[in-house]
Simulated assay, not measured.
Amino acid sequence: MLREWEEEDIPALIEMYDDPEIGRWTPVPSPFDADAAREYLGRARKARGEGRCMQLAITADGGQPQGEVLLFQDDLDDRDIELAYGVGPRHRRRGLASEAVMVATEYAVHHLDARRVLLRIEADNAPSAAVARSAGFRPAADELVPRESKGWRVLLRTWCHRNGEPAS
């Protein structure tokens, strides 16, 4: 189940994001403490209120957050929806990220009328590429996308779903 983040989720958010693997692959600050978590939730609520981004907790039953999935309009083509995700260290290798990505993809296609649903993944991020494949995404022919992350320039490969069907 996916649900909105709540103030009571701050300890779970800290546990999830104060992790070297999350820090390695995401723009989330590291270390990630209570102040960072409150600021993160504040930005998430503001972005949601402005209709720019949905940041949802991944749960098994609507309770304890085990990860997060984000949905936002692609900055290169506003007809596309980009997803991002992360799962806390204690909850990895259970298929949570793949399931959350599949649920978010369905939502993007059927409720946000996405032309394409995208993931942007660094070439060396094998775990994220495995999630993409298991969720039915395939590498797209798009050019690499440069992004700034923690003062570094990274190049991201685009993975794609087209209206619920994998890209060829």
Rank of each mutant, 00 (worst) to 15 (best):
C53S: 14
I58R: 03
L112H: 03
G67N: 05
R115H: 12
V69F: 05
L83Y: 00
Y85A: 02
N125L: 12
V87S: 00
R115I: 04
M54N: 00
H111C: 11
A84G: 14
P89H: 08
G88H: 15
D75I: 12
V103Y: 00
V117N: 01
D75P: 08
R90C: 12
G42C: 00
A60S: 13
R43T: 10
Q55W: 07
T105N: 09
S98W: 08
K46A: 12
G62N: 07
R45Q: 10
T59D: 01
Q64E: 15
A44N: 09
P65K: 02
C53N: 14
A104D: 09
L118H: 07
R90H: 14
D74C: 13
I121V: 14
P127Y: 12
S98Y: 10
V69Q: 07
Q55K: 09
G51W: 04
P65A: 03
A100D: 05
P127H: 13
E50V: 01
E122F: 08
V117W: 03
R93H: 06
A123D: 15
M54E: 00
H111T: 13
D77A: 12
Q73H: 14
L76R: 10
D75G: 11
H111V: 07
G88M: 15
V109Y: 00
G86N: 11
A108P: 11
G51T: 07
R93A: 13
A60I: 11
H110E: 14
A47L: 11
A114W: 04
F72P: 02
E99T: 14
D113L: 12
E68K: 09
D80Y: 01
K46H: 08
A60T: 06
L56Y: 01
E50Q: 11
L119A: 05
D124H: 08
G95F: 14
D74R: 05
A123N: 11
R48M: 02
R115S: 02
I81P: 01
G62W: 04
D113R: 15
L83Q: 05
L119S: 01
C53K: 15
R94H: 12
D113V: 06
A47E: 09
R79D: 11
D80R: 08
D74Q: 03
A100N: 07
R93F: 03
G62D: 08
A126C: 06
Y85Q: 02
Q64M: 14
R120M: 11
R48I: 05
F72G: 05
D113W: 14
R93D: 07
E99Y: 04
A97R: 07
